[in-house]
Design a binder for these strands. Structure first.
Length: 515
DNA sequence: GAGTTTGAAACT
DNA sequence: CAGTTTCAAACTC
């Protein structure tokens, strides 16, 4: 269990006057999670379970919130997060066998620059990532701790939710065991928190904020709805934060962002595994490719989205079940995959043996015809050499392979060429803009922009001739291609300049004679 | 864009 | 575990 410690609340806007509307919770690390033996009565709040495929389903049950102390709650308690850990050697809180969570402490709360309503909490050593949502009025305040002054992490504590004057103690109990799969690291710019394997959850008020009116029948799995304590009207919905990003593009839950409760668009919260062993920065710099699945319903590992633990989003797939609408089927599929291969959702590219390359395919490839020099090969695709565990035939994807070297050189050359072309285009574009900027005021003073009719057929032909002439000249003097391109582009710039200059002059002349 | 090739995943 | 089928991406034309 976790409660807001003084250290945390000090930095957070948990003013006692201004009720905390949202708090942070976390998913329970499944490692070592023992089977559920007894669960206190759930009195309200539909308990949904969300886990990305890498975090298979676990039900977090929100038990009766009337209790204010853990002692009053029967059943198992799970340490969601320790409060303080003066020593890094402190063992994880495991009043119930929960591994991997302990040893951490809330260290910092980092307000997100673009989203004052969202704060991140750094929990060093934790695999999870926390986000705090606060109301606008509390977001910038530095109120006193509203949580209990509990401080020990040696024992599990109930999660305490402070909602105004009422405090809600919310024990969370494990409902089922699960296999553990490493969650994907965050991919966002909001990676101030440097944990590599994290998962975020937001706790947002379920009622009655008018700004947020989720369709509770379609809340993301993992959402835990809790009633207001004592029948109050402020309940909570614990939402996996990774959904927030997708929800903004999803019809399932409406997170109104226009009325004082902006959805945290500024944060990317979707947890993901490293893609093909690439760093998070690499994976974040380019969007995931949309899938085109037609037969698998995106519920098999054929589907890259599914295999990467993501929902399909802006894909071209048919009959897609990899979405919130089909969470049941999806979870079942995840389970099936994990039954078949517990490592199914773990990254395929991992560390190799001592002395070998840092990155290597966990299973190795089985290529037969591609020579492991095409993207069919998972090793080649991940830009790594095949290793001793590969079972490929006719492999050419090894360090000394001449074919591979040639391919690399060609790829490098192509890249350089693209860069040169891009640079040339940028330069030309900038020159044109510059010229237009310089000529426009003169023209504008005459009451308008230059008519494009100055670019007549004759002008075009003359320009092309000039360019061809430059090309010939470059050819005759045996200039390298790059230089030839430069000469041609330069000539094109000159042509443009002359056209613009003439046009400007004509316009000025025209104005002077009042035509 | 259609058709082919490829190898991982799924199935038997 | 091996052989076969299915599948979607990569590739070619």
């Amino acid at each position: 269990f976790f409660s807001l410690s003084p250290q945390i609340t000090k930095k957070t806007p948990a003013s006692s006057a201004a009720p905390i509307k949202f708090i942070i919770t976390k998913t329970v690390n499944s490692k070592g999670l023992s089977p559920q033996t007894s669960v206190p009565p759930v009195i309200a709040g539909r308990v949904l379970t969300q886990n990305s495929p890498v975090m298979p389903p676990r039900t977090i049950t929100l038990s009766e919130p009337h209790n204010t102390t853990i002692q009053s709650i029967p059943g198992k308690k799970i340490a969601i997060s320790p409060l303080k850990s003066p020593s890094k050697n402190i063992k994880p809180v495991q009043s119930v066998a929960v591994g991997g969570v302990g040893g951490s402490q809330f260290k910092t709360i980092i307000p997100l620059a673009t989203q004052p309503n969202v704060q991140q909490i750094q929990v060093p050593g934790s695999r999870f990532h926390y986000v705090r949502l606060v109301t606008a009025t509390t977001a910038s305040s530095t109120g006193q701790p509203s949580g209990p002054s509990t401080s020990s992490i040696q024992t599990a504590k109930p999660m305490v939710v402070s909602a105004g004057a009422v405090r809600m103690s919310v024990p969370i109990v494990p409902a089922q065991t699960m296999k553990q799969v490493a969650p994907k690291p965050l991919t966002s710019a909001a990676q101030v928190v440097t944990t590599t394997q994290t998962q975020q959850r937001l706790i947002m008020p379920a009622t009655p904020l008018p700004q947020i009116q989720p369709n509770f029948t379609n809340l993301p799995p993992g959402t835990v709805l809790a009633p207001a304590p004592g029948g109050g009207n402020v309940g909570y919905a614990v939402v996996p934060a990774q959904y927030v990003t997708q929800l903004q593009q999803s019809p399932f839950v409406t997170l109104a962002s226009s009325s004082g409760f902006p959805a945290p668009a500024g944060i990317q919260t979707q947890a993901r595994l490293p893609l093909n062993g690439l760093s998070t920065a690499e994976t974040t710099s380019r969007p995931r490719k949309p899938c085109n699945c037609t037969k698998s319903q995106c519920l098999k590992l054929y589907c890259d989205c599914f295999a990467n633990g993501e929902f399909c989003n802006n894909c071209n797939c048919n009959n897609c079940f990899n979405n919130l609408e089909h969470e049941t089927e999806r979870l079942k599929a995840i389970k099936t995959c994990l039954d078949r291969n517990p490592e199914a959702f773990k990254p395929k590219i991992g560390k190799g043996k001592e002395g070998e390359s840092d990155r290597r395919h966990s299973k190795g490839c089985n290529c037969k015809r591609s020579g492991c020099l095409k993207n069919y090969c998972e090793c080649y695709e991940a830009k790594i050499m095949c290793s001793s565990i590969c079972k490929c035939i006719g492999c050419k994807n090894f360090e000394e392979s001449p074919e591979r070297k040639t391919l690399m050189h060609l790829a490098d050359a192509a890249e350089v060429r693209v860069q040169q072309q891009t640079a040339a285009k940028t330069k030309l574009s900038s020159q044109i803009s510059d010229l237009l900027m310089r000529t426009t005021p003169v023209i504008s003073s005459g009451g308008g922009r230059l008519p494009y009719t100055f670019v007549t057929k004759e002008v075009l032909e003359a320009t092309c001739e000039c360019l061809l002439e430059q090309a010939k000249k470059a050819e005759q003097t045996h200039q390298p291609q790059a230089e030839a391109e430069r000469m041609i582009l330069e000539e094109f710039g000159h042509c443009l300049m002359r056209i613009i200059s003439s046009a400007g002059k004509a316009k000025a002349d025209c104005a002077s004679i009042n035509c």
